[in-house]
Design a protein around this nucleic acid. Structure first.
Lengths: 209, 209
DNA sequence: GAACGCATCCCCCTTTCGGGTGGTGCCGTC
DNA sequence: GACGGCACCACCCGAAAGGGGGATGCGTTC
């Protein structure tokens, strides 16, 4: 990477105002500039392939394809993609998801330019950027298994308040099978009741409300 | 208000990046400029009194004193304060709280400059500014009664997946009473099961996950 | 003081849920 | 071909949920 050339950056966030803030902060910094902007994960993937920037800054929560999904999609095609995940929340789940999806670092939306710019440079240089206060929490984080497509189908209907019998009718399967999927969901999410499963899944970004 | 003088604007948002975006968008617009920035509701109140801007743009959700609380505090001292509420979410509950707190307008963080600038001018001119889709929802909005404080206590524990018996123990009341509150919650939110009540309440901004 | 909302408690009942055990067929991996 | 994961189905059973009913006390509002 030639230090004489400015860092080329892609930003993706569903909030136009946030994108404007990022652009303002980045473009006013010598040696880096925003070359593309997207409003959701799907756009981020397309724009990444088109511009192949040095760093992609993705909001972790976006409508449609989320930042994590976009990161996974990008890194399937460009395994060396350097991704900096942006989030409004400081929850462990978001952070872990970001890193698992292949992000090299993450920053909070509360970050000032004094934090954002070094983070971008670090990620561009192939380093990781993880805020100190949560680096330790990550290791002790509780693991959970991934849900299958069918389990997520069931979970979405559970979130709508549907009873097992109604879910069975909607998916054209037996109520026993719905219960089977539910058992599996409860086990994987370490939940003891359907309501807890739904809130846990929402917090982890598995489903949306 | 003299049209020759630029509109003086206060922005308050806990996300530095969002503040930067607002400043960039506003200051690049002729006839308006940001005169003060705050990171929470308390700062917004102090800065408002200090600068007495033409328009205050407040994030509805901030740590400590929220945007709605700040708006109420400001309008107690300055009843003619023109407040534009900013939010990432468009839950009905947020919108109602904002308008009830005395906000003249309401914009989403997804808004572009083409939406933000007219909103500021409208509010500065003493008009209301409600996004079209929000206005429609407000009119056609499914009416639901407000929950009591105790019902929200119960609902929060339900959202955590607690059983009625556990909730009774946590709140030091009888399980029958918990069931009574739940019955009331289900009726008020037009839900048929506790899980649906939780998702409906989250979507309306009554509780958070 | 009557009416009302709120919080509290109690009973009843039926349905649903959650957890256990068992099985089949399919598909991909080792 | 054996193994594991997945989707599917079945049965049992105790616990939990939810939908009725009625009741008390305590404030506030009319």
């Amino acid at each position: 990477m030639n230090p004489a050339l400015p860092l080329r950056i892609l930003v993706a966030d569903d909030h136009f105002i946030v994108r404007s803030g990022l652009v303002a902060l980045i473009d006013s910094e010598p040696g880096m500039k925003v070359v593309a902007q997207g409003a959701d994960g799907a756009q981020a993937v397309t724009l990444y392939a088109e511009h192949q920037p040095d760093v992609a800054i993705l909001d972790i929560r976006m409508p449609g394809k989320s930042g994590t999904e976009a990161a996974e999609a990008i890194r399937q095609v460009f395994p060396n993609a350097r991704i900096l995940m942006l989030t409004a929340y400081n929850g462990d789940e978001d952070i872990h998801r970001a890193l698992r999806a292949g992000a090299a670092g993450y920053i909070l939306k509360t970050s000032t330019g004094d934090d954002l710019i070094p983070a971008i440079r670090a990620v561009a240089g192939g380093l990781r950027w993880i805020p100190y206060d949560v680096a330790g929490r990550l290791a002790a984080r509780r693991q959970y298994e991934t849900l299958t497509a069918r389990e997520i189908d069931v979970l979405r209907l559970i979130a709508k308040g549907r009873a097992n019998k109604e879910i069975a009718a909607a998916l054209a399967i037996s109520e026993n099978t719905v219960k089977d999927h539910l058992k599996s969901i409860l086990g994987k999410l370490h939940a003891s009741a359907r309501t807890e499963a739904v809130t846990a899944a929402v917090q982890r970004g598995i489903i949306e409300l």
